[in-house]
């Protein structure tokens, strides 16, 4: 049995991906990058409910690490090109999850990404985002379409939680890049102090 860190967003996909990994017998921990004040409390509330359901189904503790991400978003918005904001945000999320994974002895990262669903999930954006981490990344839903994911979510009982009303992320630019160039991303990232932002984010992490 291997230990992995699952990035959770509160959406439909991540609890389904987590369900598959738990079903395979992996020991999992969950990581959430808390976007408040760019969102409201609902993503975190949904994740708490998702985990309660999956903990009981698989009789696993699944600790949740909540990393404050709002101040990172402010710095990115103030200092970098808004067009690639979602890719830069994802790179920080991956790095935050990797820091927690390494600290807790997890050997892989996981997400509920499915190819092409949203701007951040095109192949070039995924490449740009995940180039920031070294641990292997597992994507149980990569070839699923939305209808398939929703069907599983309904079957395991997470769909109703995921689809509760919430506030859309206000940090998403009007026209997010669907194709990104890693060189450009790295150049944008040089405008901020990545390590200090990450240190701050991980230091203030809460475990639930």
């Amino acid at each position: 049995m291997t230990r992995g860190a699952m990035l959770m967003s509160g959406g439909i996909d991540s609890p389904v991906a987590l369900h598959y990994l738990l079903r395979q017998g992996h020991e999992m921990l969950a990581v959430h990058l808390d976007n408040r004040p760019f969102t409201d409390d609902t993503p975190l509330e949904k994740i708490v409910d998702h985990l309660q359901l999956l903990r009981s189904r698989y009789r696993q503790a699944i600790p949740l690490y909540v990393l404050p991400h709002g101040s990172t978003q402010v710095t990115l918005m103030r200092s970098t090109d808004r067009h690639v904001g979602c890719v830069l945000c994802r790179r920080f999320m991956w790095r935050g999850a990797e820091r927690i994974a390494e600290r807790e002895g997890a050997t892989f990262l996981a997400t509920g990404e499915a190819l092409g669903q949203v701007a951040s999930q095109t192949l070039s954006n995924m490449r740009s985002a995940t180039a920031s981490v070294r641990l292997p990344i597992v994507r149980p839903l990569i070839g699923f379409d939305k209808a398939e994911i929703e069907a599983v979510a309904k079957e395991i009982g997470t769909y109703g939680i995921s689809t509760r009303p919430g506030v859309c992320c206000q940090a998403v630019p009007d026209k997010p890049a669907t194709r990104s160039d890693l060189i450009q991303i790295l150049r944008e990232e040089e405008k901020v102090d990545v390590e200090q932002m990450l240190d701050d984010c991980v230091r203030r992490a809460l475990v639930m």
Binding site: P37, F38, D40, G70, Q73, V74, M77, R78, R82, P165, V167, C168, Q170, A171
Partner: peptide, 28 residues
């Protein structure tokens, strides 16, 4: 909170104000 391209004001309810004047109230 000043994120340069938008402000988040801790009013009740909280509101986000964009440079283009778009407002998002965190309440339904």
């Amino acid at each position: 909170v000043d994120a340069k391209v938008l402000l988040i004001a801790a009013t009740d309810p909280e509101v986000t104000i964009s440079r283009a004047g778009r407002l998002l109230f965190k309440t339904a």
